[in-house]
């Protein structure tokens, strides 16, 4: 597994340097430059949304800093949560005087550091709330949703909570929308080949040349089963079946679908998947609005894809369609 890098120890910082040079709407800030924020700074009087997580998932998390999305992002090393200093800075930089929503995936390191950052900032009078992404249906049963990991579906919470904040909603309302979006989102992934961490000598997991893994996590966490590779339609069918078997209570027959590449799977293959998935959802009577196909949340060079369903009502649909702009996603 070859990589275009200089030094594993400089992987994150050199990549962030390039990212912010390529997209001047993003600037590095905070402790050791491990916070990315909007170049124009925080809008006074707007509720802030701070996110964060390990590096290695671009466009997630950093790439969604932008208008109508998130305001700041604390960045850890590859697949490691951001440190407490970055979390503190991300929250401070997202404070426009009306409080800050901490919105990130349900992982131990991220939780501990954002929690500790909140404890440190209590004395500064910054009001904080927390919503965790928990959309991966392979990581816990329907009765234990709080245990589930946050994966690609987190971008729907960014989009809708970001739209609410941009429209002037208060902290309680932005938090309610984020929690509602998370509760309405379900994701399942499939892995075809692993990635390798820049500092590791071996890939993050082993998968035989002719094997796939259903339910894989975005750090290569083992999923539901491993078996021989099968045609794309058969894989799509199983992913659809699993998503339809795990409908949230508020499902109203309309959803956005995200067919997401994990890094090394070509767009062509994602469209082959989408073609089948769309037809299966049509057959199931699910109306698909605002489909997304592309690399939205990756695991470096991992091969594979995830499918997310974001169940919509009129409120969430309007927020999903509200204007937004970041380096990797634009809604006019």
């Amino acid at each position: 597994m070859k990589k275009l890098i200089n030094d594993p120890a400089r992987y994150v910082d050199e990549s962030l340097d390039g990212l912010t040079l390529a997209f001047p709407s993003l600037v590095r800030d905070g402790a050791a430059g491990r916070v990315v924020r909007r170049a124009e700074g925080m809008t006074e009087g707007k509720v802030g949304i701070a996110s964060g997580g390990g590096f290695g998932h671009l466009p997630l998390f950093t790439g969604y800093v932008g208008r109508g999305l998130i305001d700041t992002c604390a960045i850890g090393n590859v697949f490691e949560g951001p440190n407490i200093d970055s979390c503190i800075d991300a929250i401070r930089l997202a404070d426009g005087g009306r409080g800050v929503l901490r919105l990130y995936g349900n992982y131990g390191g991220d939780r501990m550091n954002f929690d500790m950052a909140g404890e440190v900032l209590e004395d500064e009078g910054i009001r904080c709330t927390t919503v965790l992404g928990t959309d991966d249906i392979a990581s816990g049963g329907p009765g234990e949703i709080g245990r589930r990991r946050g994966v690609a579906g987190l971008i729907y919470a960014y989009k809708t909570a970001g739209a609410a904040a941009e429209a002037g909603a208060d902290l309680e309302e932005v938090t309610r929308i984020a929690a509602k979006a998370v509760a309405a989102t379900r994701t399942i992934g499939v892995g075809l080949a692993p990635c390798r961490l820049p500092s590791a000598a071996k890939p993050s997991f082993e998968l035989a040349e002719d094997e796939i893994e259903m339910g894989i996590g975005i750090h290569g966490e083992p999923g539901i089963w491993r078996d021989r590779l099968r045609p794309a339609d058969a894989i799509a069918d199983e992913m659809v079946d699993r998503l339809l078997a795990d409908l949230p209570a508020q499902s109203g027959g309309e959803a956005s679908v995200l067919v997401n590449g994990l890094g090394a799977t070509p767009l062509e293959e994602l469209f082959i998947l989408y073609r089948r998935i769309r037809s299966r959802f049509d057959q199931a009577g699910l109306t698909i609005a605002h489909p997304l196909v592309g690399n939205y949340v990756t695991s470096m060079e991992m091969q594979g894809a995830s499918v997310s369903l974001f169940h919509l009502d009129e409120e969430l649909k309007a927020l999903l369609r509200a204007p937004a702009e970041c380096a990797f996603w634009r809604v006019d």
Partner: peptide, 11 residues
Amino acid sequence: MSATGSSLGTL
């Protein structure tokens, strides 16, 4: 704490 935000390192 400055060197990592991983679960084990943070603990």
